[in-house]
Design a protein around this nucleic acid. Structure first.
Length: 185
DNA sequence: ATTTTCAAT
């Protein structure tokens, strides 16, 4: 991913109308030692309404990727993804179902911002259901840096935090905590 | 005090 794509989409003070999702996979052995599977590292983006064909959220392309790997059900894998918006209700449901059917796969989602557009259900309830099967947290500067180091063509440049990163991240983190803690809806 | 959202005006 190039530098501008990262900045335009993951900067938590911007409001891009598209979504990028970076993913990586590790195999865990009996002692929980992680071995990165770099052949399955990459990123996807949504297909927008201004593009030909049916629009599609980034998460569905991500699921397509995972399925194509045919990960061994006798092993255990840890998937990590960095996504620029939290999953909508539908995508959260699809991810939840996938994880219920694939216990050999664990998923942790780091999200830059909270997507709050309601479609067929409330984004809050979608995220709460997802949290039962997956880890979901707001990206802190440490996470932005890891995403930068792992996925951006950074040309050896270190990650440069932007103005207000920490404050915004903290605020979003509190918002997400409130969503995940709520009892209904 | 603080919009904007995998768009649609």
């Amino acid at each position: 991913m190039d530098e501008n794509t990262f900045t335009e989409n993951f900067n938590n003070q911007r409001w891009p109308s598209k979504t990028f999702l970076c993913y990586m996979v590790e195999r865990l052995d009996d002692e929980n030692t992680a071995t990165p599977l770099d052949e399955h590292k990459g990123f996807v983006r949504n297909k927008g309404r201004d593009e030909p064909g049916e629009p599609c959220h980034a998460e569905l392309y991500f699921l397509e990727q995972i399925r194509s790997w045919n990960l061994d059900r006798n092993q255990h894998y840890r998937l990590t993804c960095f996504i620029s918006w939290t999953p909508c209700y539908n995508c959260a449901q699809k991810l939840t179902t996938f994880l219920e059917e694939n216990h050999h796969i664990s998923l942790h989602i780091f999200a830059s911002r909270i997507y709050t557009v309601d479609d067929s259900g409330s984004h809050q309830s979608g995220l709460r259901a997802l949290q039962v099967r997956a880890g979901i947290t707001i990206m802190t500067s440490k996470d932005f840096e890891r995403c930068w180091v792992t996925f951006v063509d950074h040309k050896e440049k270190p990650f440069q935090p932007w103005e207000g990163l920490e404050v915004k991240s903290k605020k979003l983190c509190e918002e997400l905590q409130a969503i995940l803690r709520a009892q209904q809806n």
